[in-house]
Simulated scan of single mutants.
Amino acid sequence: MHSTDDWITTPLTGDLLRGALDVERTEHGLLPHRLPAAARAQNTDAQLAMAESQPSGVRLVLRTRATVLELDTLPTKRVYVGAPPRPEGVYELLVDGRPAGSGSVTGGNTLTIDMTTGTTEVEKGPAGTLRFAGLPEGDKDVEVWLPHNETVELVALRTDAPVHPVPDHGRRVWLHHGSSISHGSDAAGPTSTWPAHAARLGGVELVNLGLAGSALLDPFTARAMRDTPADLISVKIGINVVNADAMRLRAFGPAVHGFLDTIRDGHPTAPLLVVSPILCPLHEDTPGPLAPDFSGLADGSMRWVATGDPAERAAGKLTLNVIREELAGIVARRSAEDPNLYLLDGRDLYGEADTAELPLPDGLHPDAATHRRIGERFAGLAFAARGAFGG
């Protein structure tokens, strides 16, 4: 190994990143974003601002002979008042596509969230260093997948040999949008979210616009998807609309049409897969809004409850079953003129039988094993020869 005096510091630039739609220069370094500046300028919701800055699916991709790599980052870690500490964000290393290590960065900023009052407080902290040593000799492609659930500013990159951007290998690009489930809530790590797992099985490049709590048919998200180069596109719609009690049936259908119309403005013939919600017993027939159950917070077992009244469906309140039926009708009507539009029932990814074997731990989010199952099933259905993304 070379001495640290021989190490090379490579400027961190957007051409070393994949999976980000934008990068921002901060006083500390480079902050990847999963929504472009124009979309962020139209957003006033703190939850979405936090979610889009968490780099789910974003990775540094390098071509190098280096055997040692150090990455200085400034993470922003979340602390929930009254709850046990959250696990550290995980960085995962791939060498020529194969897992080669993982690590975390201590320190950083702390965002304290009080869910009972809705207030937040930020405490500034120092950057930390992630170090991977013992990489194989010779030229290789190196990927560092950033934590899927922890905002990260990239401060400095040091190696014991030069690094270069990796040329495009010609793989198809899959652009996916969804909720916290797609974002990767409770996945084991950034390469283990169900979209990352499915992308690996399907042999495609992932751009993950899974935005926790924020798959709400926002027009600025549709425009971001319209303007993002992609060969394959999927939108997983439903759970957040019900969680937030964001709209009624009368508004939901036109909003879905508008969202799909906007995507089609930029991708008129790309395979476009609409995915309805996976099974979630809380909201199958009970409308939102969703509320946290704080009774188990001290033991780290917070759950969620649906607070709506099933009788309100008659007045147009949305449930998952209502949304699945509406999405099926929308896709059926549109597909007469759009042969590249497809529907996937989310219960084919996680359904009744799965809830008995792998129940949702908090009533809402899948655990690590369930992420893997959903990813495998999505790949088996969407990337199959006769699937929406086959061929």
Results as ranks from 00 to 15, higher is better:
residue 196 A to Y: 09
residue 268 P to F: 13
residue 253 G to T: 15
residue 292 P to Q: 10
residue 348 D to Q: 13
residue 68 V to G: 12
residue 96 D to Q: 06
residue 86 R to L: 15
residue 387 G to R: 05
residue 370 T to W: 06
residue 159 T to N: 09
residue 372 R to V: 07
residue 120 T to G: 07
residue 222 A to Y: 07
residue 131 R to C: 11
residue 265 D to M: 14
residue 87 P to T: 13
residue 336 A to E: 12
residue 156 A to L: 01
residue 237 I to H: 08
residue 55 P to K: 05
residue 336 A to N: 05
residue 136 P to T: 00
residue 104 S to I: 02
residue 25 R to W: 04
residue 29 G to W: 00
residue 266 G to S: 07
residue 343 L to A: 10
residue 237 I to M: 09
residue 184 G to E: 06
residue 277 P to H: 08
residue 18 R to E: 12
residue 378 F to V: 03
residue 287 P to E: 00
residue 277 P to V: 09
residue 377 R to N: 09
residue 249 L to E: 13
residue 368 A to S: 13
residue 88 E to G: 04
residue 16 L to I: 03
residue 172 R to E: 14
residue 159 T to V: 10
residue 158 R to V: 06
residue 170 G to T: 11
residue 237 I to K: 10
residue 356 A to L: 11
residue 26 T to I: 07
residue 243 N to G: 02
residue 364 L to W: 08
residue 117 T to H: 04
residue 180 S to E: 04
residue 23 V to K: 03
residue 314 A to H: 14
residue 219 P to K: 00
residue 117 T to D: 05
residue 27 E to Y: 01
residue 335 S to A: 15
residue 276 S to C: 04
residue 375 G to A: 03
residue 29 G to D: 02
residue 20 A to N: 01
residue 297 L to G: 03
residue 243 N to V: 02
residue 384 A to R: 03
residue 390 G to T: 10
residue 63 R to A: 14
residue 185 S to V: 15
residue 117 T to L: 08
residue 125 G to P: 07
residue 307 T to D: 08
residue 211 L to D: 08
residue 303 R to I: 11
residue 334 R to K: 02
residue 241 V to K: 00
residue 160 D to L: 11
residue 330 I to C: 12
residue 319 T to K: 06
residue 367 D to W: 06
residue 328 A to K: 15
residue 73 T to L: 01
residue 348 D to M: 12
residue 109 N to D: 15
residue 260 L to E: 01
residue 26 T to W: 01
residue 44 T to G: 13
residue 296 G to V: 11
residue 289 P to N: 01
residue 291 A to P: 01
residue 355 T to E: 15
residue 113 I to Y: 13
residue 211 L to R: 05
residue 333 R to G: 10
residue 160 D to A: 09
residue 307 T to F: 02
residue 99 P to F: 05
residue 174 W to H: 03
residue 81 V to G: 00
residue 362 D to L: 12
residue 76 T to Y: 00
residue 381 L to H: 10
residue 370 T to G: 04
residue 176 H to K: 05
residue 153 E to W: 05
residue 361 P to N: 07
residue 41 A to W: 04
residue 224 A to R: 00
residue 303 R to K: 10
residue 384 A to K: 02
residue 107 G to N: 09
residue 390 G to A: 07
residue 277 P to R: 08
residue 270 A to C: 02
residue 79 V to R: 14
residue 26 T to F: 06
residue 44 T to E: 14
residue 155 V to G: 13
residue 211 L to N: 00
residue 110 T to F: 08
